[in-house]
Amino acid sequence: MKISYECGPCFLRQAREALDLSTDDENLKMEIMGEIFEYLSQNFKSGTNSNSTGSTMHALIKQRTGCADPYHKEKIESNNLALKYLPDVKKILEEDDSLENHVKIAIIGNILDFGAFTLDDDIESVIKNSLKKDLTIKDIVEFENSLKANDKVLYLVDNTGEIVFDKLLLSKIKEYGLDITIAVKSEPILNDACMAEALDAGLDEFGSIVEIGAGTVGYVDSKISDEFREIFNSHKFVISKGMGNYEGLTEIDLSTKEIYFLLCAKCNTISRDIGVNLQDMLLFKK
């Protein structure tokens, strides 16, 4: 997906956050922010790829600060907090074990920023209230048909914390008898799930976990490894979680694939691109 004018302040917000997590050296932060201003002044223009721009910016921060994983602590805490609520979510699903509810739970995982919650927050109410909302785009019939018609699926995960809720949808997918391949980032980027966090969350219970060969914001086709490209090309049926993967995958030809996007539209640029309202919950086939 291409950047909009609203991506500018978002890039700068992310840069500030990553810098604060990477170093306490105020002079270094000033230097790096100046370099980011220079980079954006040259590259922030219509037609620029949003994922590639963000990836370059975060790579610069990691290289200049020497901090390879600024969000390491936050990722661990997000997974641990989500795991504490997993039994409660399972109880909710016992009341309605439908495929649609499992999809909603996976999307609610995309809504919840576990890094911003504490054990004192009423996450259960957030979950229950979100479950009452209907999916704005609900290609659930097509989705179930794909589950029945295919023997394997590639599942592209998004953030830590969120991946714990993905387990419930992965468990439901298993009931359809599919072999599941779960794709994670190869290198740390933001709070995205890498191999360590996926294993910590127990995703290996449901399928084989593979790395995409890159540590990019979302999916950047030019950066994935040859090994992952083989895996991607060999899967007709793909499930994509989150906005970053949507931004990247919609840049390439998907005409030969049955690809479903599960996400919450959390920014205006994404909302406009899809044609929905802010905070809408979506399951749609592209």
Results as ranks from 00 to 15, higher is better:
276 V>G: 08
59 A>V: 00
23 T>L: 00
51 N>G: 15
149 A>W: 04
11 F>M: 10
184 V>R: 02
223 K>I: 02
65 T>R: 03
210 V>D: 01
35 E>A: 09
243 M>F: 01
16 R>E: 12
201 A>M: 04
127 I>Q: 11
262 L>Q: 06
6 E>R: 14
150 N>E: 15
27 N>L: 11
72 H>E: 10
37 F>Q: 05
42 Q>M: 07
155 Y>G: 06
221 D>Y: 05
197 E>G: 00
151 D>S: 14
280 D>Q: 11
76 I>Y: 03
87 P>N: 14
132 K>W: 06
225 S>V: 12
85 Y>S: 09
21 L>E: 08
30 M>W: 02
258 E>W: 09
205 E>T: 03
212 I>T: 10
260 Y>W: 08
231 I>W: 01
236 K>Q: 13
107 I>E: 02
278 L>V: 09
247 E>Q: 15
205 E>P: 00
249 L>E: 10
152 K>H: 14
146 S>Y: 09
230 E>K: 11
32 I>L: 02
154 L>C: 08
164 V>L: 10
17 E>Y: 01
282 L>D: 13
214 A>F: 00
90 K>I: 15
146 S>F: 13
207 G>T: 07
118 T>D: 04
171 S>P: 00
129 N>E: 15
49 N>K: 03
266 K>H: 10
155 Y>L: 11
142 E>Q: 15
185 K>V: 13
147 L>T: 10
187 E>V: 13
40 L>K: 03
122 D>Y: 12
165 F>W: 06
117 F>T: 02
77 E>S: 14
58 H>Y: 05
96 D>T: 03
251 E>M: 10
234 S>C: 04
150 N>S: 12
48 T>W: 00
117 F>C: 08
14 Q>G: 06
202 G>H: 06
158 D>G: 07
50 S>D: 06
30 M>A: 08
93 L>H: 03
117 F>R: 12
270 I>F: 14
271 S>D: 10
285 K>N: 14
121 D>T: 13
286 K>S: 12
169 L>F: 09
74 E>P: 06
19 L>G: 01
39 Y>K: 07
160 T>Q: 12
273 D>P: 12
92 I>N: 04
20 D>T: 08
161 G>A: 14
179 D>W: 04
126 V>P: 05
277 N>P: 00
239 I>N: 02
118 T>W: 07
113 D>N: 12
191 N>M: 01
66 G>R: 03
201 A>W: 03
161 G>D: 05
188 P>C: 01
100 E>I: 10
122 D>H: 14
271 S>R: 04
32 I>C: 00
182 I>P: 00
166 D>C: 05
285 K>G: 09
175 E>C: 07
176 Y>D: 07
277 N>S: 15
56 T>R: 10
219 Y>D: 03
86 L>H: 02
16 R>K: 15
256 T>F: 08
235 H>T: 12
196 A>V: 08
285 K>H: 15
54 G>D: 07
170 L>F: 01
269 T>Y: 00
165 F>E: 04
119 L>E: 15
248 G>C: 10
89 V>G: 04
79 N>M: 05
64 R>A: 08
60 L>V: 06
20 D>E: 13
194 C>P: 00
182 I>L: 07
4 S>M: 12
246 Y>W: 06
248 G>F: 04
19 L>E: 05
125 S>G: 12
83 L>Q: 14
